[in-house]
Design a protein around this nucleic acid. Structure first.
Lengths: 352, 352
DNA sequence: CTGAAAGCGCTTACAG
DNA sequence: CTGAAAGCGCTTACAG
């Protein structure tokens, strides 16, 4: 039989009120009775009934999340969906989620929103620390407030963050390179790394992906691949298309292109328009447009990182910490999924 | 403010007891008051508080699961782990899990165990219907008893099963063929399909995988691949090794081998022993041995189907149906994960 | 056919 | 420093 607060009260010859006091370190309890109760709790192996606890408790928890605005950034719709799904599930435990957005290309909006959130005194905070310097400020404030915080998508080292949920960016680039290499069947192949530039936004994990990609090829002994870099402002299709025109009319015709973020569909649209076939195109993330080009066979591989799951698990980490008071694993890398035309079907829908 | 049973009782000028009666269709309630209460419930948008419900309710639920013995079948340790993990989570809602095993190569053990389980009157039943005919009997009995049942791993069509969690076997074979084809860089390549024979056990989904594999190549126009079948009793390594000796000393030296189940590590051990390199080896499932050969580079690809998740979700489907009384999606195909040396790291540990 | 009351395992004032 | 009591939103006999 499951033992409860009542059982231990009886054993200790005290009231359940006293048991509760030692359980939660509230109110004064005589040292002797405290120890007595503690030993009985230990002996009987008491574990609290969370349902009853939640039902009886009036305390509410607020979790704040701050991410790039999903309305203007298709990728972030996915972590967003995961966060919302988790929020629904823990609502019954008196958890409320407040979600705010910042403009990915405007550091000030990030600063402003974090200020607002911190002054609202949440019980936990999830955010994407995409702006390095501002994020350090936020982190310092959180530490001072003893506010538990979770990093999502972007990782900053040496912090007291409760957890991190995201990708191992370098490894995903490394994997992309392996896939590219696998496709090579010519003597010499020109591979282009399309580097999306965005002067106003951070690109730290993009450069890690690129680094992983080049690392792979530098490790190959019988190297048939020649790597080229293509720095373009990918936010402007016109500029991108011009760059692509250049390389496709050059002497070093591309065998394959690697686009280190979710905007690979822009390159794909260029391929489609110009009827370019048999060029291996590898990119990131299951945006609707990317999925379509994958299904059409224009994109060969998409690397995906379960962004919904990252959102979902970020919320749950805080729930585990705040409510269950259980330990949380700090470093959580998502699986690096390889998505092709032949298995896309089973990755389309996010559930749980 | 969240509205409860009390609020609707007040509105309807009845006691909470009466509200409860109409909510659960128990006891007699005057038709007029019933309709009255119902309309108020509808109007106020009442949803029950599951925590309170669970706390107050004395009803226990028992879920029975029947799978091949994980002690003698490494693959089944994974669904088993998922089932147990889910069981822990729903324990707090008065759910108990009873798990039984049968011998994969002994149909009678399956029949015997199902009889035992059905006569124990569980509230829900999860099983792997690996023996087609006996399973049909079980299904009929479940239907008669109105016992909800969930298929795991193996799918039988046209049944009233609550749900199915498993793979799309043919598609996974199709994908494996695409990966094999990707690796081909020779004019003519001999590909061997290793068909694991097990006279006493069913191989239905294995043949689907093989079919998917051959289908892919039959669709290719510029076909450089020549397919061969290798029927071997894979349960006996000696026999397998002999067959491999034959093909490796033949005129049709293998470019690649496809093993349609988790015993691909046996073939890998042959490769290792005979120092066979540069032969593409593709198999299934993240058994420890397979993982090791993948990391050594002897196996190139493992196709994986999230078996832990299948177990986990099977239990949750029953929970959703029995406790939450929410609808359950019937056909649930797992993602078909492509695992390589470069991304294995992030698939090793099953969590949630 | 319907209501009043006890209880699930906790938390939270309140009284002493 | 400690106990008795009310209450969280339900379920479950019991009485009428």
């Amino acid at each position: 039989m499951k033992i409860g607060i009542k059982d231990i009260a009886k054993q200790a010859n005290v009231s359940i009120g006293t048991v509760d006091r030692v359980l939660h370190n509230r109110g004064e309890v005589a040292k002797s009775t405290r120890e007595q109760v503690l030993s009985i709790i230990d002996e009987l192996g008491y574990t609290p009934n969370l349902l009853a606890k939640s039902l009886a408790s009036k305390t509410k928890y607020t979790i704040s999340a701050l991410i790039p605005d999903p309305a203007s950034n298709a990728y972030w719709q996915k972590p967003f969906a995961g966060i919302k799904a988790a929020a629904v599930e823990i609502k019954k435990f008196n958890f409320e989620l407040q979600i705010a957005y910042f403009d990915y290309s405007n550091e000030n909006s990030f600063i402003k929103k974090t200020d607002e959130i911190l002054s609202s005194n949440p019980n936990g905070f999830i955010f994407a620390p995409v702006f390095y310097k501002s994020s350090l400020d936020v982190i310092e404030k959180c530490d001072q407030l003893e506010l538990p915080y979770v990093f999502i998508d972007v990782f900053i080292e040496n912090c007291k963050n409760l957890a991190y949920f995201g990708q191992n960016s370098a490894q995903s680039g490394y994997l992309a390179a392996r896939l590219m290499n696998l496709s090579i069947n010519q003597a010499v192949s020109h591979i282009y790394i399309v580097k999306p530039l965005n002067p106003s936004a951070p690109v730290y994990h993009l450069s890690l992906r690129e680094k992983g990609f080049t690392t792979y090829f530098s490790e190959q002994t019988s190297n048939q691949a020649i790597l080229h870099s293509l720095d373009v402002d990918i936010s402007s299709p016109a500029v991108l298309f011009e760059s692509l025109d250049t390389i496709f009319s050059s002497n070093h015709k591309p065998f394959g292109l690697f686009v280190a973020n979710s905007r690979v569909h822009l390159v794909a649209s260029y391929f489609e328009e110009n009827k370019i076939k048999n060029v291996v195109l590898i990119g990131y993330d299951l945006l609707q447009e990317n999925v379509e080009y994958l299904e059409k066979g224009i994109i060969q591989f998409l690397i995906c990182q379960k962004p919904e799951e990252q959102g979902y698990k970020s919320v749950f980490a805080l729930f585990t910490h705040l409510f269950l008071k259980d330990p949380v694993k700090k470093l959580n890398f998502s699986p690096i999924d390889i998505i092709m035309k032949e298995n896309i079907e089973y990755y389309k829908n996010f559930k749980i």
